[in-house]
Amino acid sequence: MPAATLVVPACLLVTALLVGPMVYLGRISLNHYDASSMMTEALTLENYVRAVADPYYRGVMATTLTMALVCTTTTLILGFPVAYWIARMQSSWKSLVTVMTLMPLLVGNVVRVAGWVGLLGNQGFVNAGLQGVGLIDEPIRILYTPFAVALGTVAVVLPYMILTLASVIEAIPRNVEEAAANLGAPPATVFSRVVWPLALPGVAAGCTLVFILCMNTFATAVLLGGSQFKMMAPAVYDQFSKGSNWPFGAALAFILLIATLTLTVLGSVLIARRSRRRVAA
């Protein structure tokens, strides 16, 4: 028996439980819906057209994209120093720090959201602290703002960015940096001319992963954003849980998926081209 056959059971499972449902979702998205006769079989793009044309859903998409871009950038800025620090750590603390960074990956988003509510709420730690030192008289509104969602999202995705970057930075030989420094490059130049270009593949991988996660923020958006704030993933869920307009929900789901994939592929290509040019130069 060739070893390759060992992949068959897992592939069958993914086909049955992911490909099948996704194809079915795609088919449903082409159906027609109206309130009186509910869903009727059809082959129409009207749901996609409506999702793209409707100003409300355009707004939801704009919010989602802005949020994902802001959070990905912030995560990169915060995560890079941490990743570099872990990658270059030589003490026995390294494995503990790595496990500590790994641990939050496994803690569910709902658990974390509960913490943010306690921190950012009107009677939460932050407001109580600010009032305690006399900076503010009345509690300021932090919870149920886009800022709260961004903060909560960054906290969720940071460990992914740190671990992805750290594994790439670790592979950059230390003596390349030392050589640049010995030749008189100040730290900022060593970073911009040596570390950053060599870390670009990791930056691409980390940003791709984080961007996908940000585009699909659900619990954080629902619970920290308040009722006025809407992102794509909750909008998709609403169509299935509250409304019964399955075709439109399916179309929204595909738009979210396609937008995410297109942008991540585009981003990776841009970064890859850039890194090739850097290496050539």
Partner: peptide
């Protein structure tokens, strides 16, 4: 391709996969 395929359940947004499974189960 097979490797990427087997990692796909993490790449497809969970809410999209969940909605798809929901409709699939109903069918």
């Amino acid at each position: 391709a097979v490797n990427t395929f087997l990692l796909a359940p993490l790449a497809v947004p969970a809410i999209v996969a969940g909605s798809a499974l929901y409709l699939y189960y109903v069918m």
